[in-house]
Design a protein around this nucleic acid. Structure first.
Lengths: 232, 232
DNA sequence: ATAATAGTGTCTTTTAGACAATATCAC
DNA sequence: GTGATATTGTCTAAAAGACACTATTAT
């Protein structure tokens, strides 16, 4: 480490931003939150929500703040984790910007409200968003975020982050089916989830039926990892 | 995203550094590379190798450069990946520094040379390093790096990154044993590795014996993920 | 009753783990 | 030969996958 690290005038000045891959399951499909940019560069193009980290602000706090400001989404019971950092020298045409991407997994959220700061935010299916033209290197970030979510569903209990506080085993299975894009046998899935200690805990009550046997309600259990993992 | 993002004078100026968790297996034990700091703050304390990213330099390039400059280690056939980014507002007492930590997995490397820039670099067992007092938040970074390596050995072929180009199945097993800190049955391990398509490829020749049957030599195969994973 | 969805049981195939047996070297 | 390490095979227990069957509701 050279002396220049402690000579403030010698620091290469970077801008640091956060970008957000926000995933949820809507109508049985994995969806992501995008905004339409109102400013140059990439004005009018789709982009991930995000923005600038304050000089005294923690990275995760900046992620939560930007998400609320830009999309009206409040990260409360949702899961937030750091994804990766994207810092190629020319990823922003104006200056050197290093972006710390975060991944948010949330239960089905309402449509962003028109007439607010969030009026340019929208949900799009993950498949469509990956094919769209996105600003900066946001397509690569989105791809990595989706891959992370897919992988973590295998060996962690994170699928519950896509569900509300109380959910049925079928709800949970539909999360797996949407995120992985596969069909799973309801009977074997049920058996595996129940055999996985701490994955879910039964709560009193059943869900209103849709013409079949009413389903038991569960909430997320204390476990965070799955031994053995659920296989895709 | 507010307009200030494109008003250079309004940017909160960050310093961006890279820090390196360099892991290898020496004498059957997982070891990490540390340096003794020559400057304030934390002068004289142990720290991860690392330093400052140039204003036009890619993050991974900065990681490779710092590792070579500070420790004489050349990342060539070794594995380099981004680990995570550490940016708590007061993690550096002097100013706001965001550090993009990287993880390097390397075959057994020589002792750093005295009399070079690397003369303050040293290998230490991972267990000892985790108990030592390290500068900044480097203990947390080291912990995360070791955990990442342990986890990735389960479901990827990365254990081969700890081996030289040609290695025996016993070499590979000893990597697992050192990183996980467990003993594995040599016979079952051999069978599982051979059944895992693309993990290793046999090459001609055997290794000089140490008093038993000579072992076949292998090199890393094309696979990057393990299906099914090896269990800890 | 019939349709629909939830949940349980059963059977077969696959995989993991313990460990016996065989192979090939140095001495 | 003995001792050491490598490699293959065998047996058993656990897990995965296919799918029959039972349970509980709406109509």
């Amino acid at each position: 480490m050279t002396n220049e690290l402690y000579d403030p005038a010698a620091f290469p000045p970077f801008a640091v931003t956060v970008d957000l891959v926000v995933l949820t399951v809507r109508n049985g499909r994995l969806c992501t939150l995008l905004i339409e940019r109102g400013l140059q560069p990439f004005e009018g193009q789709l982009a991930l929500p995000g923005g600038f980290v304050g000089i005294a602000e923690d990275l995760a706090d900046a992620a939560r703040r930007e998400l609320l400001e830009e999309t009206g989404v409040l990260v409360q019971h949702a899961h937030l984790e750091q994804l990766a950092t994207y810092g190629a020298p020319r990823r922003d045409p104006r200056m050197r910007v290093v972006s710390v991407a975060h991944l948010v997994l949330a239960p089905n959220l309402p449509k962003p409200q028109a007439g607010t700061d969030a009026s340019h935010a929208m949900w799009m299916t993950a498949n469509k968003a990956l094919k769209a033209r996105l600003a900066f290197d946001h397509r690569a970030i989105l791809f990595d975020g989706i891959e992370r979510a897919r992988a973590k569903l295998e060996y962690t209990t994170l699928a519950t982050a896509f569900c509300r506080t109380e959910f049925t085993i079928t709800d949970l299975r539909q999360v797996y089916e949407a995120v992985w894009g596969v069909e799973l046998d309801p009977r074997n899935f049920h058996r595996k989830v129940m055999a996985s200690e701490g994955f879910v805990e039964q709560v009193d009550g059943t869900v209103a039926t849709t013409g079949g046997r009413p389903a038991q309600l569960f909430r997320a259990g204390p476990a965070t990892e799955l031994h053995p993992p659920l296989t895709r």
